[in-house]
Simulated scan of single mutants.
Amino acid sequence: MSYVPPASLLRGLSVDAAQKFGMPSIGAHYEGRGVRTNRLDEGARCAFCRRPATNAHHVPNVGMGGRNKGFALHGYELRPALIALCGSGTTGCHGECHSGLMRIEWVWDSDEYAEAWWSGELLREYGAASPMLYEFGGWEIARLGIGTVRRIRA
């Protein structure tokens, strides 16, 4: 993809971080308004290795500083996506995410779809975190150094 949204929409975040807000979650959900109300879906499996999930990972990371708790786009307050993973944050696939050995990113199918998201068109039509966004893109999870990549479209 070559589309880059205007800096004014990013509010100081990188494109990589900002484009993960408002995307559909995998195997997890929010039960309340706060970013820490995340819960695993019943029977959730790790999005990467398919073992039973033990944690919901925020994408992008919420982190100790709390910088990535929310992101406003066209009047919508978007939260980080949640990805069900095995491990604790120091073990399993969750640990690999926190240590930088695994990368999770949202990939649009075309620049046209990326532009429709950043212009607010897809957000207004489908809403934040809608599974319908898989019609236009999907998650890519890569284990770095090994080259293993898993693409998730629903």
Rank of each mutant, 00 (worst) to 15 (best):
G63I: 03
G63E: 09
M64C: 15
M64I: 12
M64L: 14
G66E: 05
R67T: 08
R67K: 08
R67A: 13
N68G: 09
K69N: 12
K69Y: 06
G70W: 08
L73H: 13
L73A: 10
H74R: 12
Y76R: 12
E77A: 15
L78T: 15
P80I: 01
A81Q: 04
L82C: 03
L82V: 01
L82H: 01
I83Y: 03
I83V: 10
A84D: 00
A84L: 00
A84M: 00
C86S: 04
S88H: 02
G89F: 04
G89M: 03
G89E: 05
T90H: 10
G92N: 05
G92T: 05
C97H: 10
H98F: 02
G100F: 03
L101D: 11
L101Q: 14
L101M: 15
M102C: 07
M102Q: 09
I104H: 06
I104P: 04
E105W: 01
E105T: 10
E105Y: 02
E105P: 06
W106N: 04
W106M: 06
V107H: 08
V107A: 11
W108I: 06
W108S: 09
S110Y: 08
D111H: 15
E112G: 06
E112Q: 11
E112N: 06
E112F: 10
E112P: 02
E112K: 08
E112T: 10
